[in-house]
Amino acid sequence: MAEPRRWYLITYDIRDPKRWRKVHALLKGYGEWLQLSVFRCSLTDRDREKLRWELSRRMDAVDTLLVIGLCGGCVERVRAINAKEDWPEEPAPFKVL
């Protein structure tokens, strides 16, 4: 049960501003807000399922969600074909503020 982390792109389409705010706030707790309705999260399987469960409670049947898992190679390719700031470096295991 070693827990590897993988990158995920999480995109959504929410049809109601109230639900949108809730979903947006929740996702901010899990990762970085890259673009409108696109988040980047580094998650373990457990985190991912927890996030999806929490999202399912905040979203409605008309809303849509797409969770895109990225392998190491995918991330390299994303880095290669984009500007550096579009995909920031991996978060450090600790932070001194």
């Binding site: 049960m1 373990t44 399987d45 457990r46 991912r48 399922e49 927890k50 999806r52 469960w53 399912s56």
Partner: peptide, 14 residues
């Protein structure tokens, strides 16, 4: 709670 537990909870929400 591990991944399977959360997935099970999501099933029940759905």
């Amino acid at each position: 709670a591990d991944a399977a537990v959360f997935a099970g909870r999501r099933l029940h929400v759905q």
